[in-house]
Simulated assay, not measured.
Amino acid sequence: MNPAFYADMNLDAFWENSQYAHEEYESDPPTDELIQSMEEELGYKLPASYIALMKHRNGGVPVNACFPTEEPTSWSEDHIAISGILGIGREKANSLGGEFGSLFMIEDWGYPNIGVVICDCPSAGHDVVMLDYRKCGPEGEPEVIHVDQEADYEITFLAKDFETFVRGLIHEDAYDTSEEDFARALERVAQGAFSPLLQELCEKASELEGMEAKIRSICTRITNEKGYFALHADELSMLMYDIQFWLYEHKGGSITREQYLADYPSMIAFGGEFSTGGYAPSFITDWLDLRIKEGVVTVNDQQIRLTDEARQQLIKTLLEH
């Protein structure tokens, strides 16, 4: 490792040694050829301090996983948290070129194309830490920033460079707000005002009484299972995608794929207190493609709709909630 970096740090003590970290993040030390290939794919020269750390351990979970902030974010009033540092490679899902790597977060989750996603966060995609090349250009020394999807991709400055960021990480015990965060999520799901669109659609769903209560019940289960309110690709989330589409049909008229995908964020992702605060468009398109493949949603002359059988089955499922 380059002795110019981390000279007074015990890097063996920096990393968490766990099976999860090894399986999800850690790869073999990167070769010069891999580093060059990864830089060409990303379009940015990776910082020397980051490369030096990855040659010590190529991706992983740090023992100290919180970084103080002077501004509040959706995560906390005074800090952000990371789940791990992405390694250089493509093999592991949580690596720069992996399934959930930098390009995936930019292309599928809509994060700004201003650099490289370097750390994922406990919100499961709703915030990330990035290397920001706006000031220095693609060959320069990037700053480190936090990007908050739940606040319309708001950017918060963290550190002047990657080594400063690493040295500034502190242990989560200094910021144990998990119980308070979970309690706020449950309160938001139980009492938060629906978005205007979702409220309108619930009122039009005359087939079922208590539609709002049913949605809150399902989303409370989701929050209890995850520890936060977010929709992904699990069974209950897929049910909520079904419900939202069924409700959207109550607007009347024909529905195109493009129209639905454009209006989807106004239901639960944004627009009300009852909100996930963000979403990954790919989860919605994957859900829709799956339902079309299954024959649950039909496509006719570019118009999409639930089949009568699927609609009746969904109503039956909702009656059980």
Rank of each mutant, 00 (worst) to 15 (best):
N2W: 14
A4E: 08
A7M: 08
L11F: 11
D12I: 07
F14N: 14
Q19P: 02
Q19M: 07
Q19V: 14
Y20S: 08
A21E: 10
E23S: 11
E24D: 02
Y25V: 00
Y25T: 00
Y25R: 07
D28I: 10
E33W: 11
I35M: 12
E40S: 04
E40G: 06
E41I: 02
Y44L: 10
Y44Q: 09
M54A: 12
M54G: 01
K55D: 03
H56K: 13
P62R: 14
N64C: 12
P72Q: 13
W75I: 08
S76D: 15
D78W: 10
D78M: 06
G84M: 04
I88A: 00
G89Q: 04
R90W: 10
S95K: 07
S95M: 12
F100Q: 06
I106C: 09
G110K: 00
G110H: 01
N113V: 05
I114T: 10
G115Y: 13
P122W: 07
S123K: 11
A124R: 11
G125M: 02
G125W: 02
D127N: 10
V128E: 13
V128P: 04
M130D: 08
L131P: 02
Y133K: 09
Y133Q: 12
K135L: 06
G137A: 09
G137F: 08
E139A: 14
E143L: 10
E143Y: 05
A151W: 05
E154F: 09
T156R: 07
F162S: 04
H171S: 13
H171R: 00
H171D: 08
D173V: 00
A174W: 04
D176E: 08
D181P: 01
D181T: 06
F182N: 12
A185H: 13
E187M: 09
V189Q: 15
A193G: 06
P196R: 13
L198M: 14
L198F: 07
C202W: 14
E203V: 06
E207H: 11
E207N: 05
E209W: 06
K214H: 09
C219F: 01
I222W: 12
E225D: 15
E225M: 06
G227L: 12
Y228I: 12
H232T: 11
H232E: 12
A233R: 14
A233M: 07
D234C: 07
M238A: 11
E249A: 14
E249F: 11
K251F: 04
G252H: 03
G252K: 05
G253P: 07
G253V: 04
R257L: 15
E258P: 01
Q259W: 04
L261W: 04
M267S: 14
F270D: 00
E273K: 15
S282A: 01
T285E: 15
T285C: 09
D286P: 00
L288V: 10
L290Q: 08
E294Y: 05
E294K: 10
G295P: 02
V299M: 08
N300H: 15
D301H: 13
I304K: 06
A310Y: 03
A310M: 07
R311Q: 11
Q312R: 02
Q313L: 02
I315A: 03
L318H: 07
L319K: 15
